[in-house]
Amino acid sequence: MKKHTLDKDYIGTFLIRNAVSMMLLVFVVAMIFTKRSFFTADNIVNIINECSVYGVTACAMTVAIICAEFDLSASSVFAWSTVLFVICCNAFGIVAAFFITLASGAVMGAFNGILVAKVRIPAFVATLGTMTAIKGLAYVVTDAQPINTSNETLYAIGQFNILGITIAPIVFALVILIFIWFLKYTRFGRNIYATGGNYEVARLSGINVEFSKFIIFVLLGVCAAISGMLYCSRIMAGWAPYGGDLSLYCVAATVIGGTSLLGGSGGVHRTIIGVLLMAVLFNALTLLGVDGSMQKFIRGLVLITVIMFDAMANLRKRV
């Protein structure tokens, strides 16, 4: 078996596929040498805490992209979960709130899953609809006001840390391990790769493709709910506009990590790098004093660049 012969084509494709992550690495190295406050233990811990909240959803988005699907509604499920979690915390206590929020995330994911897998609406149209509807629901329930909670257990969880590492990175690490096991060692996980690689072939070889498509949306809903709850534990509040560009962030992190939008390849372990690089980039921009709208601009630009490079690498592969 030939393994990675270093011919010109292979190097070219490798360079294109990893261009963005390399550019970001160069940027990070430059930051380490120019900005003293960037490469300190405090800031690194801060970056890790920061990125883990969104990272949980990014992992689930990676699974969806491996299955050649895509979910816009993750940001709305996130916002809805912060709202629901805080309301339930105030009403029934934190344990019930946890399970209710998790269940609501799963139900919303399942709704997306039915639309895409059974009704066969293209994922982006279906999730565009659910995105609007769920966001509207969060606004309706809260009347567009932020809701606070003073639940002591939640506060204790939010403040809990080991050497500065809070609960979020621990959950993130657990989610990554579960997903790696799920994708690599379970039948459902392998089926997701097969379904994403070639839907028709997977169907004809007897894989329950509809179930594969369904389950990824349920996982996404659950993970977005977990992200929302982690976010709540830090800021003790729920509000409908939270998580505005979560979906965009997750897609960008996944593709920077090296999971192709074509589907059928990639893995959750790669997304860790993507999530970290995105977090480092925006942390560095904040340290450099770049303002909000400029950061938004750069966020969009990073997404476009990443997608373009990924698609060009795929074009080379196709030919």
Binding site: F70, P122, F124, D245, L248, V251, L261, S293, M294, K296, F297, R299, G300, L301, L303, I304, I307, M308, A311, M312, N314, L315
Partner: peptide
């Protein structure tokens, strides 16, 4: 056109452009 995109690619690229142009 550069990447021979179909609706999926067009969707994500114009989504990125939406963010960029809104920032501008």
């Amino acid at each position: 056109s550069l990447i021979n995109g179909r609706s999926g690619e067009a969707f994500i690229i114009t989504y990125g452009m939406q963010v960029v142009v809104a920032a501008i």
